[in-house]
Nucleic acid binder design. Structure first.
Lengths: 223, 223
DNA sequence: TTACGTCTTCAACAATTGTTGAAATTCTAG
DNA sequence: CTAGAATTTCAACAATTGTTGAAGACGTAA
């Protein structure tokens, strides 16, 4: 099995180096030579394995996307089944969305952390946020939103979508791990302590959604 | 006064072009030649007015930062005074933080929209998020957090800071205007309708903070 | 070993990058 | 109007960019 690894050694090394550097400096901030140097290979090898630079970028994104989607769908369906035939609690749905990202042992590896930062870069980029995220994550997210709606009867769709926008923004900024919250809070909060961030974000976001139920009941009462 | 404008015409044109392009493609995705072309001037002129590329980037950020800070501090102090001697309501504080960004007539100009997208880029960049945001916006934000804490008695600081992180993430993603929410919601929500986004985000975020009070009272009761 | 297909490196390309010094133009004060 | 300063353009630089074709090294099966 060491031989099996050896065979695709350099290919993986290129993906790892690209993942790390793209996450830190963005697509245009990274040269193929920088990637090759970090991976310990020649410049031309990246092109041999992945074609042009842009295709390497896509390959990096794709590598972990499916894994992530399956983890989260798994957690979501488990939550649905546990509560059946009733809809799950809002907070349990939110938890199923967040915890697979942060609470598995694997995701503490630097590779996953880089990948998360890369997702943050892509999701908040006007150039790619609208298209690439859709391409890789939409089916999972639509399932999530569908379940969420069952837990939010009477809440207008528009509120749910903007709520998801808030959720996604909070998650994206956590992914970015910029160190800004560290500064602001005098190191009370650490932006690279993702499991800790997860707990607080889940509570905050769940409250935002739960409040919609109260608001829509109030709305209905006034009619 | 037209002459007064004429004098700094090209300088401003360079700032506008740089703002627009940096917001769309990031720092490394933009060349000085692209900026010069969009501004209708020679490449060398950018260097003459602003020095190296990096300094031009800072100049773009700085131009509107002070204006923004003063608008928001003004709204915040008005909210504080109105409620005095009691602390303001959580939702009113959140409103004071968001509405100056979206509800003034000026900020519907494309220039401001580009600036917001640029802030989104900076804030979610691991390279600059930790330092540049601190440099330009920290005093205003610390004042905001101080007022927020008066409205959240008994809530642990850590919850407040992570709550601010969620708020900032939601705001940042709205700033980015990636069009993603449009896709997800079948155009029910439009990511470039910032005033609309503002209303929903304010409600969502205010609920997240308000829930902390209930949670901390519950916590206290069990001790 | 031999031969062959895959993987990797080497060397070089045309294009583009940020920056600069000198020339040309415009503005302004006397 | 004129001299001098500020602004703007022109032309060119060395360095770096993504990409490519040929040459070399490697693994594998006969």
């Amino acid at each position: 099995m060491a031989a099996e690894n050896k065979k695709q050694d350099k290919r993986e090394a290129i993906l790892n180096a690209a993942e790390n550097l793209f996450a830190k400096h963005g697509y245009d901030g990274v040269t193929l030579r920088a990637i090759a140097k970090e991976a310990g290979v020649d410049v031309a090898l990246a092109n041999y394995h992945f074609g042009p630079k842009r295709d390497l970028f896509d390959a990096v994104l794709l590598r972990r996307a499916q894994i992530l989607n399956s983890w989260r769908l798994e957690a979501l369906e488990a939550t649905v089944q546990k509560a059946a035939p009733n809809p799950p609690e809002v907070k349990d749905i939110i938890r199923a969305y967040f915890e697979p990202l942060f609470k598995r042992s694997q995701v503490q590896e630097p590779g996953w952390k880089s990948y998360y930062a890369l997702i943050a870069y892509v999701n908040s980029s006007p150039e790619w946020g609208g298209t690439l995220m859709t391409q890789f994550f939409d089916p999972m997210i639509h399932r999530f939103l569908a379940v969420l709606k069952t837990a939010l009867p009477g809440v207008p769709d528009k509120s749910v979508y903007w709520g998801y926008h808030c959720l996604s923004g909070a998650l994206t900024l956590a992914f970015a791990q910029t160190g800004r919250i560290d500064h602001l809070s005098n190191d009370l909060c650490k932006s690279d302590d993702l499991p800790d961030a997860c707990d607080y974000i889940v509570d905050f976001v769940a409250a935002g959604f739960s409040d919609m139920i109260a608001a829509s009941e109030k709305e209905a009462a006034t009619l």
